[in-house]
Simulated scan of single mutants.
Amino acid sequence: MYTIKEVAAMLDIPSVTLRAWESRYQAVIPQRTESGYRLYSQRDVDDLRWLKEQTEARGIGISHAVRLLKAGREAAPSEKPVAAAPGTPEQAYLQLRRQIYEALLEFQGERAAGLTDFGFSVYGYETMFHEVLAPVLVLVGDAWENGEATVAQEHYMTHFVANRFHALFHVFPVNASLPKAVCFCPAGERHEVGLLLFSLFLRRNGVEVIYLGADTPEEGVSALLREKDGIGAVCLSLTDRALLPYAEEVIARLAGLAEGALFIAGGSAFSDWQSPEGFPVRLHRSGENPARWQSWFSAVFAGRSRLPGRMT
């Protein structure tokens, strides 16, 4: 056990700050001696060290940092916070992924939100999306297909994760010189993990994204292309190979409505796709590896500019 003077010296946190964190935010509640002196356990010290790191190194407000700490404790009361989990980063991602998935499976939205906020503060948005939330969506889809999750559970979990993706769309500024992109999965395709990740990637690079999501009827995309100016990229994702002939027909028809637009296809169904003879549009593929998207974007997308109603 440590006195407040010892903790202040160890962590370089003034005693007055430790008292304020305790009284205002209930950050750490130390034990008291019969005389009223504070005594801090090693766990208290570890928690205070983590809070200091969040406020100083990551710029998070103390009230928010305390909420994240408590969310981690509630999610795994017998464990250390996720950020302090032993082992490799991959093991920490796996642990957080499992905790969020199990919380969503039980419709525990507040717990899942707390864990997700915790992860964003520790790992940042890109790592959190690629290493935790995107795999959660994959788990959800697999569980639904295997009969391990109900339709209600699948909808609830997918909606939760998708909302987190969309929340970041408005964080990044739009580059008005770049073409707008419409992103969708053709009718019948329910897996939108790759589409979400790629759409967020485009948005981060300044592209205004019109996200239509999974299982989108062709009529809706066609109407959008007729009515909306400045759309210079049509992005679709497909994992179900049985839908590939239909997707080719959709692309061919949409190409007539978006002359000069860049057509981009992703998803495992297009991994070894060969253009049929007489196909009316060149289909660009960014690749399945997100690490290569930036070089692809610079080479294929960034050089295109937007003019009212048409592409140059």
Rank of each mutant, 00 (worst) to 15 (best):
A103F: 10
A103R: 08
A103H: 05
L104Q: 10
L105T: 12
E106V: 06
F107I: 14
Q108K: 15
G109W: 06
G109I: 10
G109E: 15
G109R: 15
E110Y: 09
E110M: 07
E110D: 15
R111Y: 00
R111F: 01
A112C: 10
A113Y: 00
A113F: 01
A113Q: 08
G114V: 06
G114E: 05
L115F: 10
T116S: 14
D117V: 07
D117R: 11
F118C: 06
S121R: 07
S121C: 12
S121P: 06
S121A: 15
S121H: 04
V122F: 09
V122N: 01
V122M: 02
G124Y: 08
Y125E: 13
E126G: 04
E126R: 14
F129K: 05
F129A: 13
H130R: 14
H130I: 13
E131F: 04
E131V: 02
E131C: 11
V132S: 00
A134G: 02
A134K: 03
A134F: 06
P135E: 05
V136R: 05
V136L: 11
V136M: 09
L137V: 02
L137Q: 03
L137P: 01
V138K: 05
V138A: 04
V138P: 00
V138D: 02
L139Y: 10
V140I: 15
V140G: 07
V140E: 06
D142L: 12
D142N: 14
A143I: 00
A143Q: 09
W144S: 03
W144K: 07
E145I: 04
N146V: 04
N146H: 08
E148C: 07
E148R: 15
A149Y: 00
A149I: 06
A149T: 06
A149W: 02
T150C: 04
V151E: 01
V151Y: 00
A152P: 00
A152I: 09
Q153K: 08
Q153M: 06
Q153W: 05
E154G: 01
E154H: 03
H155L: 02
Y156S: 04
Y156I: 00
Y156H: 15
M157D: 04
M157W: 11
T158W: 01
T158Q: 01
H159A: 15
F160K: 06
F160S: 07
V161H: 04
A162P: 01
N163H: 12
F165Q: 11
F165H: 13
A167E: 13
A167L: 12
L168R: 01
L168W: 03
F169Q: 06
H170M: 05
H170A: 10
V171I: 11
F172Q: 10
P173W: 11
P173M: 13
P173T: 14
P173R: 07
P173K: 12
V174P: 00
N175D: 11
A176Y: 11
A176R: 15
S177F: 03
S177A: 10
L178P: 02
L178A: 08
V182D: 07
V182A: 11
V182T: 14
C185S: 08
